[in-house]
Design a protein around this nucleic acid. Sequence first.
DNA 1: AAGCCGTGCAACCGCACAGTC
DNA 2: TGACTGTGCGGTTGCACGGCT
Length: 205
Amino acid sequence: MRKPCCEKEGKNKGAWSKQEDQKLIDYIRKHGEGCWRSLPDAAGLLRCGKSCRLRWVNYLRPDLKRGNFGEDEEDLIIKLHALLGNRWSLIAGRLPGRTDNEVKNHWNTHLKRRLAQMGTDPDNHRLGLRRVTRPSKLLFVSNNHTYNKEVNSQADEIPVLLNSATDTEIISNSTNISMISSVPDLNLDLTIGLPFMESMNQICT
DNA sequence: AAGCCGTGCAACCGCACAGTC
DNA sequence: TGACTGTGCGGTTGCACGGCT
């Protein structure tokens, strides 16, 4: 039986009061972040460390943006979700002032529904699988390199996941996924699967 | 006015993982 | 090397609130 992450007996749960918030802010201003387990005692809070961390990270941090998501932010979330899936912390890391919790909530309450209404599966961002069998020009973006590839024969046949919501195509094989994008200004710097990259280099050169 | 229901969001929970001893 | 600890992450829950009947 796993031990609880921290002692919860006699601790407060639920919504934070203004006084609790202020205690946490004051303590972190004075001592900085970290040592969440010992922080509640040191700060005079009847909360577990995890609760303190969550409150600070998701709500009290001074660099948080708060407020509604802009169109550009929503667009970026959709693009990143197509690439990363439910890796909320990674996605939030690309959105200054936004937290993983905030992004996750916004996705679940707004964007997921919107994609579904557009006929796009919000889980995998695709309308369907297709193969590149017609002459196509693909743009492959990775790190600081951009590859152009003309696909014009069966020999070049590549499985492509079509993502209508993001105007993006993802080339894949069974074990690796990399990004093909028709949005060249979106440099995601997110390379997955080196062996596949090598094969892409061969294809593209 | 009261009850019901859907929505949005803050917070909790359990698990995974990295670091340390 | 294995146990333990601290932290972070993603999924889920529960509450507040507003709209509708």
